[in-house]
């Protein structure tokens, strides 16, 4: 709140940037979609999956959502395509495919 006031005074006009890049709304890192970096895309084969949840545990980005102890499909907004999940999956239920448009 204070930030907004100073922001105006310093820039002489409204700025979407806070002074000194201070982030005062905790938890807003979800707004920063990092999936754009991905060169390879993990593709989930539901039929082979046993829901062992190893991929969910290993994913460094929390890009595999779960509900009631069962994994759901990848969240491609944040998956960076590192391939760890595919490597760790004991049942080859994840395949890394080239990102193509």
């Amino acid at each position: 709140m204070v930030i907004k006031k100073i922001k105006k005074k310093i820039a002489g006009k409204k700025s979407r940037l806070s002074v000194g890049a201070v982030i005062q709304d905790p938890g807003n890192s979800v707004e920063n979609k990092t999936g754009g970096w991905r060169a390879l895309r993990p593709v989930w084969n539901k039929d082979k999956c046993t829901q062992c949840m190893l991929c969910w545990m290993y994913c460094p980005d929390g890009a595999i959502p779960q509900k009631n102890g069962k994994r759901l499909d990848f969240n491609y907004d944040y998956c960076k395509g590192c391939g760890i999940c595919a490597r760790e999956c004991p049942f080859q239920a994840i395949e890394m495919k080239k990102e193509e448009k």
Binding site: I3, I6, A21, I23, Q24, P26
Partner: peptide, 14 residues
């Protein structure tokens, strides 16, 4: 201070 780590949760130097 215009902003402070003391009090409201914030990130500085991102």
């Amino acid at each position: 201070p215009a902003f402070s780590l003391d009090g409201k949760t914030s990130t500085m130097g991102p």
